[in-house]
Structures are given as structure tokens and as C-alpha cells.
Amino acid sequence: MEGILAAVEASAFGATMRRSVWLFPAANVLHVVGAMVFFALVAAMDVAVLRHSATGARGVIASIRPYAVAGLLVQIVTGLMLLVPEASHIGMNPAFRIKLLAIGLALLNVAVLEGILHAAARDLTLLRLARFAAAASLAVWLAVAALGRLIAYF
């Protein structure tokens, strides 16, 4: 793993990110702003689950999801831009590694929540489980943001 991270850091893109006066700061700002927008969209979807029926929540989620996916893509691209210039250091950072696990957990929760919402339209007792998954989503995505900030301190 360390060899791959060192190669990524030594790449032409890594060197460009380190040398550029504006590229790294621009990626950093976009990553922070993107995190705020992405979390707002996720929160809107999760609050819809907490407040509405499964059918009503699915309608809200369907209208917001394309924007949330775009926001997640911005996070991935800018996150990679921030990783590459210091990949060997950041890649071994415990906060970064836990952040990646939390992102995986959050994305798995999205899939589980989707399945529950589809089933909850036919079985109202599952709506409680959907609401638990929505609350967990809020908590895990907040943890992802906090872990991103903690990377600077490890």
C-alpha cells in the first residue's frame, strides 16, 4: 500500500498539485463548500424519511438524489486532488482511514435505506427501521466531515 501511495504522490499530477499556487487551495475550498452542499442535500433526504411516509420520502429523495450524486462526485474529485500531493502521508493517517470506512458505511446505509423504503411502502412497521437508518445516515455523514477535519491533526 505504501508503495502505491508513494507512486501516486510522485506522479505528474501530484507534482502539479504541489507546485500550483492556486490548484490545491481551489480544490480545498471546493471540497469544503461541496461538503456543506452535499450534507445539506443528504440531510434534506434523511429529514424527509424522518417526517413523511415511505412513499412521500421516496418522492422527495427522487427529486434530490441527482444533486446529491453530483455533490458526492465533487467530493470524490476534490478529495483525490487533496490526497495526491501528500498521498504517502495522508494515506497512512488513521483519521483518513477511518473516514474511508465511514464513507463506505454511509454508502452501504444508503443502499439499505433504499431497500427498506421500497418494502416500507407495503409494510408500515418497516418505516421505523427506515427512520433509524435516516438518523444513522445523518450521524455517519457528520462523522465523515469531522474525520476529514481531523486528518490535519494526525
Score class of each variant (00 low, 15 high):
residue 103 I to P: 03
residue 120 A to F: 06
residue 113 L to M: 14
residue 100 L to I: 15
residue 113 L to P: 03
residue 94 P to W: 13
residue 109 N to M: 09
residue 84 V to S: 01
residue 124 L to I: 11
residue 106 A to L: 08
residue 114 E to A: 12
residue 114 E to G: 05
residue 88 S to R: 12
residue 107 L to Y: 08
residue 85 P to T: 10
residue 105 L to T: 14
residue 109 N to K: 09
residue 107 L to F: 14
residue 118 H to D: 13
residue 84 V to W: 04
residue 97 R to W: 01
residue 109 N to D: 15
residue 119 A to Y: 05
residue 83 L to C: 07
residue 90 I to R: 02
residue 110 V to R: 11
residue 110 V to I: 13
residue 120 A to I: 08
residue 119 A to C: 06
residue 91 G to C: 09
residue 96 F to I: 03
residue 113 L to G: 06
residue 83 L to F: 15
residue 103 I to K: 04
residue 87 A to C: 07
residue 97 R to C: 03
residue 102 A to D: 04
residue 99 K to H: 06
residue 114 E to F: 10
residue 114 E to Q: 11
residue 84 V to L: 09
residue 100 L to C: 08
residue 111 A to N: 06
residue 120 A to D: 05
residue 91 G to N: 06
residue 97 R to P: 02
residue 96 F to D: 00
residue 91 G to F: 06
residue 116 I to N: 01
residue 120 A to S: 07
residue 103 I to F: 09
residue 86 E to S: 09
residue 83 L to W: 01
residue 108 L to Y: 09
residue 112 V to M: 13
residue 118 H to C: 01
residue 95 A to L: 05
residue 88 S to D: 09
residue 112 V to H: 05
residue 94 P to H: 11
residue 96 F to Q: 04
residue 94 P to N: 11
residue 97 R to A: 05
residue 120 A to H: 03
residue 113 L to A: 11
residue 96 F to N: 05
residue 102 A to V: 13
residue 124 L to M: 10
residue 120 A to C: 09
residue 106 A to M: 09
residue 110 V to H: 10
residue 85 P to V: 07
residue 103 I to G: 03
residue 104 G to R: 12
residue 98 I to H: 01
residue 105 L to P: 01
residue 87 A to Y: 00
residue 106 A to Y: 04
residue 87 A to P: 01
residue 121 A to I: 02
residue 93 N to K: 04
residue 87 A to Q: 00
residue 115 G to P: 09
residue 98 I to G: 00
residue 89 H to Q: 14
residue 118 H to W: 13
residue 109 N to A: 09
residue 92 M to N: 12
residue 88 S to Q: 11
residue 91 G to I: 07
residue 120 A to N: 05
residue 122 R to Y: 12
residue 122 R to W: 07
residue 91 G to P: 07
residue 111 A to H: 10
residue 91 G to K: 02
residue 95 A to Q: 05
residue 97 R to Q: 15
residue 102 A to P: 04
residue 87 A to W: 02
residue 93 N to Q: 08
residue 104 G to Y: 10
residue 106 A to I: 08
residue 93 N to P: 04
residue 86 E to D: 15
residue 84 V to I: 15
residue 105 L to S: 11
residue 96 F to H: 08
residue 107 L to K: 07
residue 85 P to Q: 09
residue 112 V to D: 03
residue 106 A to D: 04
residue 109 N to P: 09
residue 119 A to N: 05
residue 100 L to P: 00
residue 111 A to L: 14
residue 123 D to A: 13
residue 105 L to E: 03
residue 121 A to M: 13
residue 103 I to N: 01
residue 104 G to V: 10
residue 90 I to H: 00
residue 113 L to Y: 04
residue 95 A to G: 06
residue 105 L to W: 04
residue 114 E to I: 08
residue 110 V to P: 00
residue 91 G to T: 04
residue 122 R to I: 03
residue 124 L to A: 15
residue 120 A to P: 05
residue 104 G to W: 07
